[in-house]
Write a protein that binds this DNA or RNA. Structure first.
Lengths: 238, 238
DNA sequence: CTACAATAAATCGTATAGGATATCGTATTG
DNA sequence: CAATACGATATCCTATACGATTTATTGTAG
């Protein structure tokens, strides 16, 4: 990474002759740094467990240490990086098998109920959005393998998120979304090319919503998560 | 608060004549600052929604700005403080009624199942610990009202936490513990003196565990949470 | 007496410098 | 040849100074 392109070209010059409204830069530098590091984590540009030196970030992002430390602290609070005293920051380690099982146990407790509730309050507009999010349209978009999986990962995330959003409990939604960031990194390590089956199951969920069948929605969501678990479990046999 | 007692008396003197092993200070300053602010939040010394100026913390804790910013960032990542650009940090606002309902919905989905599972794997030692945590012994310790409630709040927290710990899912445990910090602040705002009923319900849960009756444990835990919800809900009618 | 504007204070955001510690490489000795 | 000790480098941790922005206060005009 030899691209020292600064986030903001020149920060401290505010010429009175140039009345540029600084409205477009409402976010603080620390926030931009946060997003930059978050993106690198999600794209696996920073491997799980590897060190994160603030000095490198200073050079790469062209900002001083303070906002970087602040952003790193926030990421630590969210569990994405860990800090060892007098050693430094590092990306959170890869998810363990035990943690993986716990995550699916949690999902199994929350998401089927969310689907049940969502089916009861599903509107026509929400259903259309959900169908759009499921991406059943451009299913056979013949891109390369990696690109296809990348798109599926994004679709899968928003699909499940939207269901929980329709169900209405924002707290549960945040909880699952937060866990999903960890899960995403794990899943990216293996190019699990099991998208076809998952897409079928997504359609089954949609069908239950379309029929406003709450019990079926809960049941098929449970099956979907259980199968997802089974599909991903072999990844630990490496 | 005019007590500028420093966290660490003198940080930068390491006399070669005094071979004090610096092992006891394994935690970084930022971590100590984190705990200090966390404690103030929990004790309501910083009211929800009120401003938190780093300058005050610099004076009160006798440390520089950098570790304070780092700790504040971490607290932000955990949702306990919020940051507004060019305005500063402030304690997270009081929980809304909607959020309160969502929290109990989440607890209702997780804790009864945890109790069900816990009853199946309950050991004699764990049951003893749980009974100790429930504090049925010194129930009528005739302290003042506030002191009694403070003790109940702590007991209630560890009681529920231990049950989930026995159940074995560490992720669910962390999720609930995290939410409990928010909940604790809310509950502290009202000196809900409904401890007697809750203690009765705790004993009912214990009885189910003692009988290793998993279905009863789930049922009575559900009842406990539902009643807790009903007890606290009037707080929003202020 | 109220509303608006300008000034002053407070606070955040940023940058830079220096001290302390862990890690890694190298040399020396058993 | 292996193991240990020493030293250099890299990095974190802390402290301080300065600039930019927001907010509060005060004075003046209507």
């Amino acid at each position: 990474m030899r691209s020292p392109k600064p986030l903001i070209a020149s920060f401290h010059l505010s010429e009175p002759g140039a009345p540029e409204p600084p409205i477009h830069r409402a976010a603080s530098l620390a926030e931009e740094v946060y997003e930059a590091i978050f993106a690198r984590l999600m794209a696996l540009k920073i491997a799980p467990g590897s060190r994160i030196t603030v000095d490198n970030l200073v050079r790469e992002l062209a900002v001083s240490q303070t906002p970087i430390r602040e952003a790193l602290g926030r990421l630590e609070g969210e569990g994405l990086v860990v800090k060892t005293h007098l050693v430094g920051y590092s990306a959170a380690p890869q998810i363990t098998r035990r943690r993986f099982e716990e995550l699916y146990e949690l999902r199994l407790l929350l998401e089927p109920e969310a689907a049940h509730r969502a089916a009861q309050v599903m509107t026509e507009a929400a259903l259309a959005e959900l169908t759009e999010a499921a991406g059943v349209m451009h299913r056979s978009g013949g891109a390369d393998e990696r690109g296809r999986y990348s798109r599926f990962a994004r679709q899968d995330a928003v699909f499940h998120d939207k269901i929980v959003a329709v169900a209405g409990n924002e707290l549960i939604r945040e909880t699952l979304a937060h866990q999903h960031t960890h899960f995403h990194i794990f899943r990216l390590m293996f190019h699990a090319r099991v998208t076809e089956e998952a897409l079928d199951e997504h359609e089954a969920i949609l069908a239950a919503f379309a029929a406003r069948d709450a019990d079926a929605a809960r049941r098929v969501m449970r099956t979907h998560i259980e199968r997802s678990y089974a599909r991903l479990l072999p990844a630990f046999d490496s």
